Simulated scan of single mutants.
Amino acid sequence: MIALDADGVLLDYSAAYAGTWARAFGVSPVVCNPDAYWPMDRWGVARLEGPALERFRASFDEEFWSTVPPIEGALEACSELVGQGFELVCVTALASRFRQARIANLRTLGFPLSDVLVVEDQGLHQSPKADVIKALNPLAFVDDYLPYFRGMPGHVHKALIVREPDGSPNAGPELSIVDSQHKDLRAFSNAWATRRAGRAGKP
């Protein structure tokens, strides 16, 4: 089994963010910094307060969470991993009320997942995903957010998708807790195919 994050690994949250901004305010944002990790910085949109902020937050509804587009190459990477014999499970941090929307989104896009598990981020020092990963006991856990590797079992391979560098939380001493880094899920899939072939070739 391999456990996969959703936003930033399977799904393009940043693109969905721009679409939601357009839906809320009637103006489509343009890319300001393509190397920005956070959508607000990528699209260069205003920092909202008061009624405008509430209006935008209200746009992150069932429709939003059921229509996030896939990251380019992610579906193909999942198909390759399944073809290598791995079972794929999605472990995503999201408000539990949107679980069905997330499941519908991933299924509609055709991701070959055996299950989708939703955890709520409680702002603790340990990753909100740690207990789920301990229970699943996968061979590997793939995420694009370094703090979500805190408290993970040592024997589980921790693969970080590094993504865009500007403003990224994926830096500093905590990088020592991950076992590998990849630019996207396709790169992870290729690395694991090579790793598996190498093990198969051992006498």
Score class of each variant (00 low, 15 high):
Asp5Pro: 05
Asp12His: 12
Tyr13Phe: 15
Tyr13Val: 00
Tyr13Pro: 00
Tyr13Lys: 08
Tyr13Cys: 00
Ala15Lys: 12
Tyr17Phe: 15
Gly19Lys: 02
Arg23Phe: 02
Arg23Trp: 10
Val27Thr: 14
Pro29Gln: 06
Asn33Pro: 00
Pro39Arg: 04
Pro39Phe: 01
Gly50Ile: 10
Pro51Glu: 14
Arg57Ala: 12
Glu63Cys: 11
Glu63Thr: 13
Phe64Pro: 10
Thr67Lys: 08
Gly73Ser: 11
Leu75Thr: 05
Glu76Ser: 14
Ser79Pro: 00
Val82Asp: 04
Gly85Ala: 04
Phe86Ile: 01
Thr92Pro: 04
Ala95Ile: 00
Gln100Ala: 14
Ala101Pro: 05
Ile103Phe: 02
Ile103Arg: 14
Arg107Trp: 07
Thr108Gln: 13
Phe111Val: 05
Asp115Ala: 14
Val116His: 03
Val119Ala: 08
His125Val: 14
Ala130Cys: 09
Ile133Lys: 02
Pro138Gly: 06
Ala140Asn: 09
Phe141Met: 12
Val142Trp: 10
Leu146Tyr: 02
Tyr148Phe: 15
Phe149Leu: 11
Lys158Met: 10
Ala159Trp: 03
Leu160Ser: 06
Glu164Asn: 13
Pro165Tyr: 07
Ser168Lys: 05
Pro169Ala: 07
Gly172Leu: 02
Gly172Arg: 09
Gly172Ala: 07
Gly172Lys: 07
Glu174His: 11
Ser180Leu: 06
Phe188Asp: 07
Ser189Trp: 07
Asn190Asp: 15
Trp192His: 12
Ala193Ser: 14
Arg195Trp: 13
